[in-house]
């Protein structure tokens, strides 16, 4: 962690942290989901992501050291995935924005000669399902009741400013950010419109947040999330579990 990372490490760390952090947020839903069937669905997605995180982090070093002993500023995930769950519509929005990105990214990555290509090929299948889950729910919430429509629109609007970061270049990832953005926008626009919702028009980045998560700049709630996640592990230095 102290030595300068290889380029492939930087990419693995970025994607691994995305998966780790989103998995953690989804894990917070356990026991709180709107219906039992959805408890099972959300947990499945969380478990897929955690599995991806473990493979990716293990490429870089010891998965637990990386997850539990890094400070907030050393995490390389995008800010989108660390955003708190909010209501179900907020969570579904986060899932939609992120899983479409992740799916497009992994599909591309799978065809490169990157060290991450085999992992990306496997993960792309999982992520395709996550994306489908998010799309199905976006349709139902958007085109459901007046209340669900309003909540879903609020979710889309609130998280929109975290989406610009998804297309910033990542060291070690040989993927063209602009074509990714074009395709992402097309997919999201189509789903959002089909759900009778409106694609937000505001900026996709805040004043100083462009690419910030990937540089180790995070939002306030992330620190609290890490404090909770790391507390037990850090309380017993050197212990094994």
């Amino acid at each position: 962690m102290t030595t300068a990372p290889r380029t492939a490490d930087a990419a693995a760390l970025a994607l691994g942290d995305d998966a780790l952090v989103l998995s953690h947020r989804l894990g917070e839903w356990a026991g709180h989901a709107p219906v039992l069937e959805e408890e099972v669905a959300l947990a499945n997605i969380a478990l897929d992501l955690l599995g991806q995180a473990r493979v990716l982090l293990s490429l870089v070093g010891d998965e637990d050291e990386l997850a539990y002993l890094r400070e907030e500023r050393a995490f390389r995930n995008v800010q989108l995935v660390e955003q708190p769950n909010g209501d179900f519509a907020h969570t579904i929005t986060r899932q939609l924005y992120f899983s479409v990105y992740q799916h497009l990214l992994y599909d591309r990555l799978a065809t490169t000669d990157s060290e991450l290509a085999p992992l990306a090929a496997k993960a792309a299948k999982e992520v395709a399902y996550h994306r489908d889950h998010a799309e199905q729910w976006t349709l139902r919430l958007g085109d459901g009741t007046a209340e669900s429509h309003e909540r879903m629109q609020r979710g889309l609007d609130a998280l929109w400013r975290f989406t610009g970061e998804l297309f910033q270049p990542v060291q070690g990832l040989d993927v063209d950010g602009e074509s990714l953005r074009t395709e992402w926008t097309a997919v999201v626009t189509s789903v959002v419109r089909k759900a009778t919702l409106t694609v937000p028009e505001g900026p996709q980045t805040g004043a100083w947040t462009a690419g910030a998560g990937r540089q180790g700049l995070h939002t306030e709630s992330f620190g609290r999330m890490l404090a909770e996640m790391q507390h037990l592990h850090r309380s017993h230095p050197g212990a094994s579990w």
Partner: peptide
């Protein structure tokens, strides 16, 4: 299981009965 429609029923079934 319970589901609002066929598409969701299929997905819920996948999550629940083939995990």
């Amino acid at each position: 299981l319970h589901a609002p429609d066929a598409e969701m029923a299929l997905r819920n079934a996948r999550d629940l009965y083939t995990r």
